Structures are given as C-alpha cells and as structure tokens.
Simulated assay, not measured.
Amino acid sequence: MKPEPPTVLRCAGRTVARYTTRPGLAPDRSPRPYLHPVTTLAGRPVTETVPADHPHHLGVGVAVPDVAGHNFWGGRTFVRDRGSVALDNHGVQRHDGFKLCDPDGFVEELTWTAGGERLLREHRTVAAVALTGTAWALDLTFSLTNVSGRDLSIGSPATNGRPGAAYGGFFWRAPKEPTAPVVFGAGTGADGPGADGGSGADGGSGADGGSGADGEEAVHGARADWVALAGDGWTLVFAGATARTREDPWFVRAAEYPGVGSSLAHDQRLPVAAGETFVRRVVTVVADGRLDRDGAAALVRKAVTS
C-alpha cells in the first residue's frame, strides 16, 4: 500500500484522532486502516501502534485473525495442535475511498482481500461525538458482506484450540504504562463470562451502573453492556451499541498489555454465507481523568443515544 497523509478527526474544536487509510506496513502486519493517535479532549494519547510487545497492534480498528484461514490480524496464526505459527496467509484491508469525509467523521468503503481473492466488502462509519467538557465518544460501525461467491466463516485462536483468546472484530490497543489499567464493567449477561475462564461478575444493573464486575478476569469473556479501562489520567468505556453487538463477549487484556475488543468468534466460528452481511457497532467513551462506575454508565447512556 502507498502511504497517504492521515485523515484528521475533530471534536469540540480539537483534533482527537488521526486515521491512516493506507499504511506502509509489511505483509505480515496485515495492513489495514487504523486510528492513531486517539486522544482525550485534553490531548492525552489513549492509543498505541506497533508496540514492541505486539508489533501488529494498530491503534483502533477492525482486525480478524481468521477469515476462512486468512489472517487479517497480523503476526502469527494459531493452528490447532501446532500452536502459533508464522504463515504466509495474511490479508489486506484495502481502502477504496470515502463516501463522506467531514471533520467530525467519515464513511468509508473497503475491500478485504487475500491471495488475490476478494473475500469481504466493508462499509465503515466513524464519528466523533461531543459529550461533556472532558469526554467525547468514538462511534464506529462496520458492516461486512461476503463477496467471495462462496460460504465463509470467521474464527479466532479460541475456536482453533487456544482457550481465552477469542479476539477478532473491533479492537482498541491502549498505551502501556508502568501500572496496568484498572478494569471494571457493567453487570454481565445471564451466561456470565462464557468459555474464557473468567471468574464472572457479581450481578449489577447493566448500563445503569450497580455493582457490576471488577478486574480483568471478571470482565474478560463477559457479555456486558459495557467495559472500562482506566489508566493514568484517562478512562475508556466500550459499549456495544446494538443488541447483536452486545451478544459478543468482550476480549480484555490489562496485565500483559492494555487492550479491549469484541469477540466475533467466541466459542464457535461465525458462519457468513455467500452474499450475507453482518453489522457491529461499538461506541467508546474517551474521558479525561478516572471515572467511577456510575460516571461511566452515565456517559455510556449519553453516547449511545446521541
């Protein structure tokens, strides 16, 4: 891909993100558009790209480790009974153009290709929404259509035999700091944290706050209305903004590295028939300072209904 200048995203009169459409990355990084840096309204960075611990992590975007055996995540591929293996199976998310590009958001068309084959067509919408004087929201929706002419399925390392690693879909890599971020969330769904081995939640009242769940183990793999990371002077609150998105468990890392994403393929592969389209929407509150559970819940309600 030929690098292009980033597209600037603004909110409340301030630059809050830059979007790279055609990154100049090696094939094994699974080149794809991404947002970085993303900042709070006060200018504090809350994303990281190409970190030493996972050089294929690229700020905020959409990444899937297994689309019919093709890697759109970057790095090694987890293969059942073999482990993580370096394979020549990396795909590319090609930026085809903007249908709309305003200072506070854009509508983008992309094509996911691998091995010379068009697999998926994506329609992506990104918007920056002002919430308060210290918080804004990044609203990201992606719609993926199977254009391969055959049935496909989406998998993850978890569905390929690695428990607890059901990443794939929306993903946000946060900056690594000397101390791991605090993790907390709303109350989880009735089935708790699913198959990822978390310890579950202690009830709670969903998006209205309540007791919720605390800690990486409790939130990782949970089906919750929202989850939060709170670092040094910043808080990120991730919310599934549609009923179908809220059915996807959350993938959460804090101790090893700070990152939150959705799990399109949690305990089984996600089938995508020829011509079929599926849609996910995640709204992320980006706040200065340390939010408590009630504050996070209030901003989520405002962000999702804005």
Rank of each mutant, 00 (worst) to 15 (best):
residue 1 M to Q: 13
residue 5 P to A: 10
residue 5 P to Q: 07
residue 6 P to F: 01
residue 8 V to Y: 08
residue 9 L to H: 04
residue 14 R to S: 12
residue 14 R to L: 14
residue 16 V to R: 04
residue 21 T to K: 04
residue 22 R to Y: 14
residue 28 D to C: 09
residue 30 S to N: 03
residue 36 H to K: 07
residue 40 T to S: 06
residue 42 A to M: 14
residue 45 P to V: 06
residue 47 T to A: 02
residue 48 E to F: 03
residue 55 P to A: 04
residue 55 P to Y: 03
residue 56 H to M: 02
residue 58 L to H: 08
residue 61 G to K: 03
residue 61 G to M: 07
residue 67 V to G: 02
residue 69 G to A: 05
residue 70 H to Q: 13
residue 71 N to G: 00
residue 71 N to K: 05
residue 75 G to A: 06
residue 82 R to Q: 11
residue 83 G to Y: 00
residue 84 S to Q: 15
residue 86 A to N: 15
residue 88 D to R: 14
residue 88 D to I: 02
residue 89 N to E: 04
residue 89 N to I: 07
residue 91 G to R: 01
residue 92 V to F: 10
residue 96 D to W: 06
residue 98 F to V: 06
residue 99 K to M: 10
residue 103 P to D: 05
residue 106 F to L: 13
residue 108 E to H: 11
residue 111 T to D: 12
residue 113 T to Y: 09
residue 113 T to V: 13
residue 116 G to T: 10
residue 117 E to A: 09
residue 118 R to G: 05
residue 121 R to P: 02
residue 122 E to P: 06
residue 123 H to K: 15
residue 123 H to M: 13
residue 128 A to K: 07
residue 133 G to E: 11
residue 135 A to V: 03
residue 136 W to P: 01
residue 137 A to I: 01
residue 139 D to Q: 00
residue 142 F to W: 07
residue 143 S to D: 09
residue 148 S to A: 15
residue 151 D to A: 07
residue 153 S to D: 12
residue 154 I to A: 08
residue 155 G to Y: 03
residue 159 T to C: 00
residue 160 N to R: 10
residue 161 G to P: 01
residue 162 R to D: 02
residue 170 F to C: 07
residue 171 F to R: 00
residue 172 W to S: 01
residue 179 T to V: 14
residue 179 T to N: 13
residue 186 A to N: 02
residue 192 G to H: 04
residue 193 P to H: 15
residue 196 D to T: 12
residue 201 A to K: 07
residue 202 D to E: 09
residue 204 G to S: 12
residue 204 G to Y: 12
residue 205 S to R: 15
residue 205 S to E: 15
residue 208 D to Y: 14
residue 213 A to M: 12
residue 216 E to I: 01
residue 220 H to W: 01
residue 225 D to Y: 06
residue 229 L to S: 06
residue 231 G to I: 08
residue 231 G to H: 08
residue 232 D to R: 11
residue 233 G to H: 01
residue 233 G to T: 01
residue 235 T to E: 09
residue 240 G to M: 12
residue 241 A to E: 03
residue 245 T to N: 03
residue 249 P to N: 14
residue 249 P to H: 15
residue 251 F to N: 02
residue 262 S to C: 09
residue 264 L to H: 02
residue 267 D to S: 09
residue 268 Q to K: 10
residue 269 R to W: 00
residue 270 L to N: 02
residue 271 P to R: 10
residue 273 A to T: 10
residue 280 R to K: 08
residue 281 R to G: 10
residue 286 V to F: 03
residue 288 D to F: 11
residue 288 D to R: 08
residue 291 L to M: 03
residue 292 D to A: 15
residue 295 G to A: 12
residue 298 A to R: 14
residue 300 V to Y: 02
residue 302 K to E: 13
residue 306 S to K: 15
